Amino acid sequence: MLSAEEERRGNRIEANKVNDVVTPKAKSKNRAANLAALQQLSEAYPNAFDRKNVRPLKIGIQDDLIADEKVAKNKIKRALASYVRSLNYLRSLQDGADRIDINGEASGSVTAEEAQHAKGKLKEINQARREQKREQEKKERMNNKLEALLSMNK
């Protein structure tokens, strides 16, 4: 049996785990808000935010968007964060590729370091997805084994 102190520690650890987890409902709510904000940017600046033709954005474009005042500042931040973390955006960051401003005009280019950073991010994301898939498959195998054992006992 666990001592009272060990039990309290266990409960405290479990409570921390629960508090650190983002619920699927909150995650989908954030995703929906991000997509709505990105949709507003796409409508206000179709030459810069084209989801079918993703191109690197100008460094400091956030300041230009805020100054233009077509979209609320909090929506701009939310949309940009979502946009620049997308796989297509990271793939667009190729060495020497033109960056674009809010009008879709060339405004600087992607450096080799930026391209390398994006490549590393893509690698990290893909690795995390592979690990997540392995974990899911492991859980499914375990569930199948448990179901088989339970059915044998019946």
Score class of each variant (00 low, 15 high):
Arg51Ser: 11
Asn53Trp: 04
Asp64Cys: 01
Arg8Phe: 03
Leu80Cys: 08
Gly60Ala: 10
Lys25Glu: 15
Val22His: 03
Glu113Leu: 00
Glu124His: 02
Glu43Val: 10
Val54Asn: 10
Pro56Cys: 12
Lys25Trp: 05
Asn143Cys: 05
Pro24Met: 13
Ala106Thr: 08
Ala115Gln: 03
Lys138Cys: 07
Leu35Trp: 04
Ala106Leu: 01
Gly104Ile: 07
Lys133Glu: 13
Asn19Gly: 09
Gln136His: 12
Lys145Cys: 01
His117Gln: 15
Asn34Phe: 06
Leu2Ile: 11
Arg31Leu: 11
Ala79Arg: 05
Arg31Phe: 05
Gln94Leu: 09
Arg78Ile: 01
Ile76Glu: 03
Asp98Met: 05
Glu69Pro: 07
Ala106Gly: 00
Leu93Trp: 06
Thr111Phe: 00
Leu57Gly: 11
Pro56Asn: 09
Gln62Glu: 15
Lys154Asp: 15
Ser86Met: 13
Met152Thr: 03
Ser28Asn: 08
Asn30Asp: 09
Glu137Ile: 00
Val21Cys: 08
Asn19Met: 10
Gln116Met: 00
Lys145Gly: 02
Asn143Ser: 12
Gln136Ile: 12
Phe49Gln: 10
Asn16Val: 01
Ile76Val: 02
Arg129Trp: 03
Ala128Gln: 11
Asp101Tyr: 06
Asn34Val: 07
Ile76Cys: 00
Ala33Ile: 02
Ala112Thr: 05
Ala32Leu: 04
Arg12Phe: 06
Ile102Gly: 01
Ile61Asn: 08
Lys154Ala: 10
Leu122Gln: 09
Glu69Val: 14
Arg51Thr: 09
Lys145Asp: 05
Glu69Asn: 15
Ser42Met: 12
Ile61Ala: 06
Glu147Asp: 06
Gln94Lys: 15
Gly60Met: 08
Arg85Ile: 07
Ala128Tyr: 03
Asp98Glu: 14
Tyr45Pro: 05
Ser86His: 04
Ala15Arg: 13
Leu2Ser: 13
Leu93Ala: 04
Arg9Ser: 13
Gly104Trp: 07
Lys27Ile: 09
Leu150Ile: 01
Asn47Ser: 14
Phe49Met: 11
Ala26Asn: 07
Val71Asn: 11
Asp98Gly: 01
Gln136Tyr: 10
Ala36His: 10
Arg12Gly: 06
Asn143Ile: 03
Lys119Met: 12
Arg99Trp: 06
Val71Phe: 06
Asp64Trp: 02
Asn74Met: 06
Ser82Arg: 06
Ser109Asp: 05
Leu38Ser: 10
Gln94Pro: 04
Arg130Gly: 12
Lys138Gln: 14
Ala128Pro: 02
Arg31Ser: 01
Leu93Asn: 14
Leu87Lys: 14
Pro24Thr: 13
Lys17Ala: 10
Arg99Pro: 04
Ala148Ile: 00
Ile76Ala: 00
Arg134Trp: 06
Met152Arg: 04
Val110Ile: 11
Arg9Tyr: 08
Asn11Trp: 00
Ser109Arg: 06
Gln136Cys: 07
Met152Leu: 01
Ser42Ala: 14
Arg51Lys: 13
Asn30Cys: 02
Lys73Cys: 07
Gln94Phe: 02
His117Thr: 09
Ser82Pro: 01
Gly10Met: 14
Gln39Ala: 10
Asn53Gln: 13
Ser151Arg: 11
Glu124Ala: 07
Glu113Tyr: 02
Glu147Phe: 02
Lys58Met: 14
Leu122Arg: 08
Arg85Thr: 15
